[in-house]
Design a protein around this nucleic acid. Structure first.
Lengths: 252, 252
DNA sequence: TGCATTTAATTGGTCAGGCCAGTTGACCAG
DNA sequence: CTGGTCAACTGGCCTGACCAATTAAATGCA
């Protein structure tokens, strides 16, 4: 039960303390906070640290900083847990499983309502993907465009957003570092072929085929990754993120 | 009408510049930014100013600062509602459709791997729901617990999170106001019955039945809502959010 | 040669002190 | 009472420095 220690950065701690003061009502809405220099003294930190903490609160919309005048409380509670500093929490394996379940269903749905312009969107992404197998970032962007493009065929903004967010979860430094060990033209080409299979099934209105193709694609992605994963990291746990078994994510 | 003058603070300008670099792809996702000292020189500002700008981007979730290592691009575009009070963007109808597609697939999957303790979790949520039909907030919490509980049966943290986030999207002020017009013991009772049907299908391992029951539930939710929606708002467009036709979300 | 350890360079985190510019309110001349 | 000036305060920004975490090169050992 030790506190996770965590060694949080100082300005975060300072921001938390001020946040608590505001939430508890100790600092009423509309009231002016103590001057930066006074806050620094009260919190036993330097003024730059206080400034950084206040900027955090300002971005969160809790306070309003008026130069020359002071800092004023705007509202009591952070509007929402934007949770931008939240870690992925989930491991790569869980992420791929979730994508398999969700994106299969989306592909199935898309096959039932595919229109020419939607298919054209997929084709455009495929073309960009095949044209830049040597440019990692370009291929990655095209990969993302393909997956969100399927959601776009359904014409549902929520699906597009959710699909994109799940894709982006592998953009963390941790995943990126792992990916750099195995991403290459060959794996991208395999992924591209699987993409084409999905595209064709959707274009043909074959719901079951699209679902199966998407499942195959994500399963193969996992396989591709876990193979090179085993080479580079023989079972070691690199960081604390991946809870259970740490398999991998791969090109999708 | 007078120019707001604004005299933007330097660290805001610096943050904007870096933001543009990221959005334009000049700094790819996963890539490391130049060191703070280099950025300071490139932007012709001091290091503290660069730090403040980076903290803004970190709070917005665009970059990930790792001490001793560097600053890494997490995503290309200011995540959902970087300004936390951002609007839902998607309309209630789209949200329900997305939930129907995604949660049906999850329910289907859950039916294939249901264990006693998972079912117990659903039962507990159902009990809380039936026991508090007159307490809106309690029932809402139980409703949420039921839906995330299905994802929990699959044992996938990503699915739990996504399900929860989609549920929470109706907690915006806009949706809450609409909901207050029709939420009541009767509608909650109907939703409860549908929940029980889903629960039974999952407990029986009936994948197709669970999928169908979930689809029915979300369809009925939409129907319940759009009925009372028609009474209160005779065709008027309330706000700019809902893209196409503005149907509604209801108890799920 | 191959591997583990140590060392040094790099990078973010924090601090101290200082100067500038905008804001505010008291004070004084009209 | 009105208007203007001025000084105290407050945030904005800078220089320069040191510490701590990370990373990669250099080193020592087997």
């Amino acid at each position: 039960m030790f506190s996770p220690v965590e060694s949080r950065r100082l300005y975060r701690q300072a921001a938390d303390q001020i946040r608590v003061m505001i939430a508890s009502g100790e600092l009423a809405v509309g009231q002016r906070l103590p001057a930066e220099r006074d806050l620094a003294e009260q919190l036993s930190v330097s003024r730059p640290t206080v400034r950084e903490a206040l900027i955090v609160l300002e971005v969160e919309g809790l306070v309003n900083i008026r130069m020359g005048s002071g800092i004023y409380v705007v509202r009591q509670h952070a509007a929402k847990a934007a949770a931008s500093d939240r870690e992925p929490v989930e491991g790569p394996f869980e992420l791929l499983q979730a994508r398999a379940i969700i994106e299969c269903a989306i592909a199935e749905e898309a096959a039932g309502c595919a229109k020419p312009d939607g298919i054209a969107g997929l084709d455009e992404a495929l073309m960009r993907m095949s044209g830049g197998v040597n440019d990692a970032s370009a291929v990655l962007a095209a990969d993302r465009a393909f997956h969100t493009g399927i959601a776009a065929i359904v014409g549902n903004a929520t699906l597009i957003r959710v699909t994109g967010e799940m894709f982006d979860m592998r953009m963390t430094p941790y995943f990126a570092r792992l990916a750099s060990h195995f991403e290459g033209p060959n794996t991208w080409r395999s992924a591209l072929d699987e993409h084409r299979t999905i595209r064709d099934a959707i274009a043909a209105g074959d719901a079951a085929g699209a679902k199966a193709a998407m499942r195959t694609h994500l399963t193969m992605s996992q396989k591709r990754f876990s193979e090179s994963f085993g080479e580079e990291f023989s079972g070691e746990e690199k960081r604390g993120h991946n809870k259970g078994r740490a398999k991998g994510t791969a090109k999708t």
